[in-house]
Amino acid sequence: MLDVKNLTVGFPVRNRGEKAMLMAVNDVSLTLNKGDALGLVGESGSGKSTIGRTILHLNPSTSGHIALDGEEITRLSAAGERALRKRAQMIFQDPHSALNPRMTILRSVAEPLVLHTRLRGSALREKVGELLETVGLQKQFLYRYPHELSGGQKQRVCIARAMALNPELLVLDEPTSALDVSVQAQILEFLKSIQQQKSLTYLFISHNLAVVRYMCNRVAVMYLGKIVEQGPTEEVFKAPRHPYTKALLEAVPLPEAGQSRRTAPLGGDIPSPLNPPTGCAFHTRCDKAIAGKCDRVPPPEVDFGHGHVASCFLGVEGQGTTGEKIRELA
C-alpha cells in the first residue's frame, strides 16, 4: 500500500559557519501492506520521525520515491496534497502542544471536516460528537479547551481529529511517549482495536521497543538515517541479526526481578548525523566490526527469509542463514 523507495531527506544546516547538508534519512526503502503496523525504531538522530513527516509532506524530500497504492506522491500539486490529507494522517508525540490552545475541542476536531467536507452547523457538531464517542470521550468535552484535559484525553482528541476524514494510513510519531504508563496502556489498546476495526495501516514511530513489539507486526530498526534491519516483529525480537538491534534489545531494562545490573551493551556515543562514519555507520560502536571492511565499504543487505533483512557483513559470512540472497547495495 505504501511504498517508499530510496528515500533521502537532507536539511541544509550551518556547521561552524559552513553550509552543510544533514542527511536525516539516507536511502531508505520501506513497504507497508494494507493492515500492517510497521514499527520504526531508533535512537535520536536516526531519522525515524523525518520519514513520517516526509511521507505526509511536512518536510520536502531530497530524492527517492513515495507511492501510495501505486500512485506516486513524492511531488504533489496543491490539489494532490489535499487529496493526500484525506488518505494519510499523523498523530504527534506531544498531545499537550498538538492542539491549538485557543480552540475548543469542537473546533479542533471539526477543522479537517470544515476543510474537506461540506458539513456545517449542527450536522458538523453531530459528526464531531460521534468522533469523540469513538475515541471514548463524552460529548461534554466539545466545548472545553485543551488545558482542561489530561494528557490521555488530549491524545484521544488528536486521534479523533486524525480519524475525521477516515484515512487509510496513520503515521504515529511517538504517540504515547509523553504519557504515563497506565494511560499509555489504554491508548495503545485503543489504537490496536481501531486498527483492526477499520483495517488501518500504521507507521508507528517509537524509541520504545516494548511498545513496538506490542503494537506492530513488522519492525524496521534505524541508525543514523539508514535502516539496519527489518522484518516480522517476532523474528526480529527473537533472533536479531544486526549487532545494533541486538544491543538495542539488550539495553532495555526489563520490568522484572533478577536482571544483571552491569550490562551496558554499547559503549560510546551516537555519532553526529552531520558527519556519519564511513562504511557501516555503526562500525564505531560495533564490537564485531571487521577492520578494513566495515569502516570502508557499506554493508550488503542480507535476506534471512520472510522479509527479514539486515545490512551487515556478518550475515554474509554465514550465521546459519538459510537460502539468503545477497544483494550488494550500490
Binding site: 489530561s150 504508563v181 497506565s182 494511560v183 496502556a185 495503545l188 489498546e189 516494548a210 511498545v211
Partner: peptide, 23 residues
C-alpha cells in the same frame, strides 16, 4: 499490579494490556 500490567514487556510476545482506568 495495575502498573505492571500496563507496560508491554520488551522481552515477551504481546499480551493484552489493561491500563488503569480513571484519574
Amino acid at each position: 499490579e495495575g502498573l505492571l500490567r500496563s507496560i508491554p514487556h520488551p522481552g515477551r510476545p504481546p499480551e493484552s494490556l489493561s491500563g488503569i482506568p480513571g484519574f
